[in-house]
Nucleic acid binder design. Structure first.
Lengths: 341, 341
DNA sequence: ATTTTTTATGCAAGCGCTTACATTTCCAAG
DNA sequence: CTTGGAAATGTAAGCGCTTGCATAAAAAAT
């Protein structure tokens, strides 16, 4: 049963402090425009009544919310956690509140979430990856809400991005795999539909093949949703095919870990019998046995830079531009040369 | 440069559709109270203008936001991810939006976040653990915002909770450790200050000791913040002390994994030389070698139940009550009998 | 055809806050 | 003392939406 105890308003505070609502408002927002003694009376009243300004009213009157929205595909795995944490910390430092929503990799849900965030008055929005219904971008433009795209980097898209070049990063990894002598390569990828990061990574693998004069025909690609179990299942599919690969490149660490796990369960030695690589370098990568060879992404740095950039965009500080985060190869134990047979 | 293209309002839509604002509003909120033909005109206008209702205005006028806020200690590790995902999914199903904020284990920040969420009109709030400044609870009561406490269960506290009994769960684990023959037991715990879940778990270990007629004196406890590296560091402290333990009970899986990793790096065999246990049963637990013996917490179920309960609380559906989630022991490989010396 | 009932729509009053502008107060200088 | 101007405070007009009530239109009953 909701008690009908009424929530105190600005006016209540004003009355309690014996001043006008304008003064109270000023106390809260521009304290130096109010004489010290009055201020004290007001803050006391605020304290006594347990007053919290009503955000909706404030938003209406002031047109700024100091809120940034972020929509990530999932909270379930660690991929976004670290970067987002840094993002949020930096925003907080700058006086912004972060609202996070997850779209579960569903474009439709994402669209809905974006509208929700805008309606909630997000001053700016962080999105993962470029690829989505163009309507969304035009909508955001209509609404006058700046967008920053992260976890990917491209100067060709109209949106500003802070992230890394998925294609190049993956190409570097793939080249290393090839350099080690692998010719039969399997790929466990995320779903490429509507996900430019995934398709970029795929393209990167093909680039590496092409550059080494290898045909991309023998490349067996399994697309699956992200997850440990999915990685394991994809591993099975790959290994139960006619031509067993000697190396498997995975779209991310989570898939790779799943694959390694399954490989070991089935008695394969990694990397002697089968090499497996990941992407992201989440904490887990160092911890599995064998430690995962993967692409290291400086998530913290990315989150930080994204926060700075987006805040500046919101605050209209000159024109921001895209920023590329450099990845590096984390060469560990899960990749080795193929055993001759 | 922000273009001054103005964002369309309800009134613009009304004008475009040739109806009153009231009708537009009804179209959006109670479509069946508007005749089909009018509705079409309105929805078309909404579409054409790219209209999104202003949340602040709505909140002011309607006093309901269909928003639930959740404050978790951290997004950085997987402990809360799974449960929260389930929580959010169920809420979404019921037409609520979830706003997540993380407090980084800082009570002060948490307090601030709570105020922010309330100001933003959260209809209800999810908090982790009971222990916090009582002011917060009375504030929430003043504001008429229902709170649900999760990740812990207690019928003794005034707040409704959905979670598990940390003390009992940990006791069960500790008993198993003792049963295996361990007498020198080390503990790597989270920081117990202001964190009832941590202190409950600690108490659970002592209970187990007491019940088996063992003194709690020899129990060496290291408190540290959660993290892989922290777990590793704590392991060092424990093992470099005079009396080396034969088993280490960790406050959560993350700490345990860190400890295992360090143990192995230092040449200890787990569990032959040293047993290590965790708590939570995050995905990682199955994947490390040796697989972690830990307490399995059905996070998904907990998130789901929390969502249902909190939504009902918000909607005033009778009086909700606390709900206990049953944990179970996940006995795997990181715990074994001590080797005789 | 008229009256009653039902259904669809419009009118307008707020919701709690910010802020431009008006007013009062204070203090220094004349 | 005045007086002028700066500083502090007050007044009141919205911000965009929902909703109770009034009104109009349509349907049903007489």
């Amino acid at each position: 049963m909701k008690k009908d105890r009424t929530v105190p308003t600005l006016e209540d505070v004003a009355k309690a402090a014996g001043v006008s609502t304008a003064t109270v408002s000023r106390c809260l927002n521009t304290p130096d425009r109010v004489v010290k003694e009055t201020r004290k009376r007001v803050t006391d009243a605020v304290e006594a009544l347990g007053y919290t300004p009503n955000f909706g009213a404030r938003m209406m009157a002031a047109k700024r919310t100091h809120t940034i929205g972020a929509i990530i595909p999932t909270m379930e795995n660690a991929i976004f956690a670290r970067g987002l944490q840094a993002f949020q910390e930096e925003l907080h430092r700058r006086g912004y509140t972060l609202i996070v929503a997850s779209s579960a990799y569903q474009p439709k849900l994402e669209k809905e979430q974006i509208r929700t965030l805008v309606a909630r008055g997000a001053d700016g929005i962080l999105l993962i990856g470029h690829e989505r219904d163009p309507d969304i971008y035009s909508y955001l433009e209509t609404q006058n809400v700046p967008v920053l795209v992260a976890w990917t980097y491209s100067t060709e898209k109209p949106q500003i991005s802070v992230g890394f070049d998925n294609r190049l990063s993956m190409r570097a990894l793939a080249e290393e795999v090839i350099r080690q002598g692998h010719r039969q390569i399997g790929v466990i990828s995320g779903e490429s539909a509507g996900n430019d990061r995934v398709s970029q990574r795929l393209a990167g693998i093909q680039d590496a093949l092409n550059m080494n004069g290898l045909s991309t025909d023998k490349l067996r690609v399994i697309e699956t949703s992200y997850g440990i179990d999915e990685g394991a299942a994809a591993f099975d599919k790959l290994m139960d095919a006619d031509q067993q690969p000697t190396a498997i490149i995975c779209g991310n660490d989570v898939l790779a870990v799943g694959a390694i796990h399954r490989a070991q369960a089935r008695g394969f030695r990694v990397p002697e019998d089968i090499s497996i690589t990941g992407f992201d370098d989440i904490e887990l990568a160092k911890l599995v046995r064998p430690a995962l060879t993967t692409v290291h992404v400086p998530h913290h740095q990315m989150g930080l830079k994204a926060a700075v950039t987006l805040a500046d965009m919101v605050e209209n500080k000159g024109s921001q531009s895209s920023y590329e985060i450099e990845t590096s190869l984390a060469v560990r134990d899960s990749l080795g040369p193929p055993t001759q047979t």
